[in-house]
Computed example of a mutant assay.
Amino acid sequence: MSIPSKLLINSKELKEVLGISKSTAYRYLRQYPDFPKPIKLSQNKTLWNAPKIVEWLENNFQADN
């Protein structure tokens, strides 16, 4: 997985850019205390640090290649 060009992405872009859904990201937040926390800008606007999520996914879910 390559690091996206944008540092912060919205919930819709999680699926497009990183291949995980918003519900999966929130499940990871509950299950894994070290999963990168979202940045809540307002009640309806949440952003995610894409490079940190990519790094976390690579460290925790490495493919068996």
Rank of each mutant, 00 (worst) to 15 (best):
M1S: 12
S2N: 10
S2G: 08
S2F: 08
I3C: 05
I3G: 00
I3V: 14
P4W: 10
S5G: 07
S5F: 15
S5H: 14
K6G: 03
L7W: 07
L7I: 11
L8G: 06
I9T: 06
N10S: 12
S11E: 10
S11M: 06
L14H: 04
L14D: 03
L14I: 05
K15M: 14
E16T: 14
V17N: 09
V17K: 02
V17Y: 01
L18S: 02
T24K: 05
A25E: 00
Y26L: 08
R27D: 11
Y28C: 12
L29T: 01
Q31P: 01
Y32A: 14
P33S: 14
P33L: 06
D34Q: 10
D34I: 02
F35S: 02
F35N: 01
K37N: 05
K37R: 15
K37L: 12
P38S: 00
P38V: 00
I39W: 10
I39N: 06
K40P: 08
L41N: 03
S42W: 07
S42D: 07
N44D: 09
N44V: 00
K45G: 01
L47V: 10
N49D: 07
N49I: 10
A50C: 03
A50Y: 09
K52A: 11
K52T: 01
K52N: 01
I53Y: 05
E55Q: 13
E55I: 02
L57N: 09
L57P: 13
L57E: 04
E58N: 13
N60W: 12
N60G: 12
N60T: 09
N60R: 05
N60D: 08
F61Y: 12
Q62M: 15
Q62K: 13
A63V: 12
D64T: 08
D64P: 08
D64Q: 15
N65K: 14
N65L: 15
